[in-house]
């Protein structure tokens, strides 16, 4: 359960972003969360709410966009979605693909008061 550490890192980062723009009133935070990021979506929602208390982000919404895994196959030269998170070879030729999407853990955008 490291989602609390992740939530605190997020808040620090958004604070930095806000300060660099002269202070923002953040309504919602959009997060891209890869299926292979090692972070649980529901646990993060819970921890985000708890970690925001008493900060300038208290009351803000966390909107999580789950990013599916995309493999690049060096044999087929194509991108593909694996059959499941447990089967990460190229679905066509079974070559060991490279994971090119699915590790994301990033703040994509902020919805701020106009």
């Amino acid at each position: 359960m490291h989602e609390l550490s992740i939530a605190i890192s997020m808040i620090d980062q958004i604070q930095e972003e806000s300060e660099s723009r002269g202070g923002l009133t953040v309504k919602a935070v959009h997060l891209s969360l890869g299926l292979l990021s090692g972070v649980d979506k529901d646990a993060l929602q819970f921890c985000y709410k708890a970690a925001c208390q008493g900060t300038f982000l208290e009351g803000s919404q966390l909107v999580i966009e789950v990013v599916p895994i995309v493999l690049y196959c060096p044999a087929c030269l194509t991108e593909s979605r694996p059959v499941s998170i447990q089967q990460l070879a190229c679905p066509e030729c079974r070559t060991a693909g490279r994971v090119i999407r699915g590790h994301e853990l990033e703040v994509a955008s902020l919805e701020v008061a106009a």
Partner: peptide, 17 residues
């Protein structure tokens, strides 16, 4: 001026530090 929220692109890795 509209009071609907505006969207700011950030694209920052949470574990950047």
């Amino acid at each position: 001026m509209s009071d609907s929220p505006r969207l700011i692109e950030v694209r920052a890795k949470v574990l950047k530090q």
